[in-house]
């Protein structure tokens, strides 16, 4: 019997720049991943089991990050497949910005714009909103099985991952929304220190996001938007040796050993979880 492999479309907009490394990370987790250009017939998307919208600067971030891409017909189809058919959708960085502008995240009323990924908080020294590009730590803030992108993680999992964005601050003017998201366990990842302490300081929370939010899912758990880049932490070779703890030690121990360098990094768990969810849907069908 032929082995079944889930197949996802990785949406490529003009200005996307992470599609190939995201494809490599997804395929390392056992997902067949097709780079799907934004101007192809959106009806072709229905044949895929799920979708990934990766990082970059779609439409050069014109007007504001993600908003122009969110108006494209292809996003309408992703919206319908996620809401009507429950297909998994993962948005990373610019993909997260697109999902927020599409009204899929947080998705209490799908289609309604309930939040923003605003410019990073003002840097007190330079008094400008800085682009942040560095490694941070995330803590799994919901039960692993709450969301289709975290099932392979341990409860309270703390992991290192890089961020690279200028507009990554989850914020809202909807009163009580953040509390509601915590009550619903839709807050998937929070920025924390290496010991898992959620502290609102510029060192820990790189963009000033409300409640240190780094990733959110929709109420159904089949759509997740996260600002950090799990595809850049999917292989041990991608991790900096200076990292504290287990992951840094793994990288230092792997020095000079190609096989050890190709082993899974912590970001692989996002894609492995997505594969589990995709397989469960395929088996159920």
């Amino acid at each position: 019997m032929a082995q079944i492999t889930p197949r996802v479309a990785l949406i490529q907009f003009p200005g996307s720049n992470c599609e190939w490394e995201t494809k490599r990370a997804a395929e390392a987790a056992g997902i067949t991943c097709d780079v799907f250009r934004w101007n192809r017939d959106p009806n072709e998307l229905a044949a895929y089991d799920g979708y990934i919208i990766g990082g970059g600067f779609s439409y050069q971030d014109r007007v504001r990050s993600g908003v122009i891409a969110a108006k494209e017909p292809i996003c309408q189809t992703v919206f319908e497949q996620a809401t009507a058919n429950g297909k998994p959708v993962l948005g990373i960085c610019n993909g997260a910005q697109i999902l927020v502008e599409l009204g899929l995240i947080p998705g209490l009323e799908p289609g309604k714009i309930e939040m923003a990924l605003a410019p990073n908080r003002l840097d007190p020294a330079s008094r400008i909103n800085l682009f942040v590009c560095r490694w941070v730590y995330l803590k799994l803030a919901c039960p692993p099985d709450r969301c289709q992108f975290t099932a392979a993680m341990e409860p309270d999992f703390v992991w290192p991952v890089p961020v690279a964005h200028g507009e990554g601050r989850f914020t809202t003017r909807t009163e009580g929304l953040i509390e509601q998201l915590f009550d619903n366990q839709q807050v998937v990842f929070q920025y924390c220190d290496e010991d898992g302490n959620v502290i609102d300081s510029p060192q820990v929370n790189p963009n000033g996001a409300l409640a240190n939010i780094a990733g959110l899912c929709n109420p159904q758990g089949n759509v997740m938007a996260m600002m950090p880049h799990p595809e850049r932490a999917s292989f041990v070779r991608q991790l900096p040796g200076e990292l504290a703890g287990e992951w840094g030690r793994l990288k230092r121990d792997a020095w000079g050993n190609a096989q050890a360098m190709a082993a899974a990094g912590p970001g692989r768990l996002v894609f492995a979880s997505m594969r589990e969810a995709l397989m469960a849907r395929i088996v159920a069908a």
């Binding site: 007007v63 504001r64 908003v67 969110a70 108006k71 996003c75 309408q76 919206f79 502008e101 599409l102 009204g103 289609g111 309604k112 714009i113 309930e114 939040m115 923003a116 605003a118 410019p119 601050r169 914020t171 809202t172 003017r173 909807t174």
Partner: peptide, 16 residues
């Protein structure tokens, strides 16, 4: 004013 995915473009009222 962006209120939904198909309405409004220039302003996201959650930070602007």
């Amino acid at each position: 004013v962006t209120r939904s995915r198909d309405r409004g473009l220039l302003v996201n009222p959650h930070f602007q």
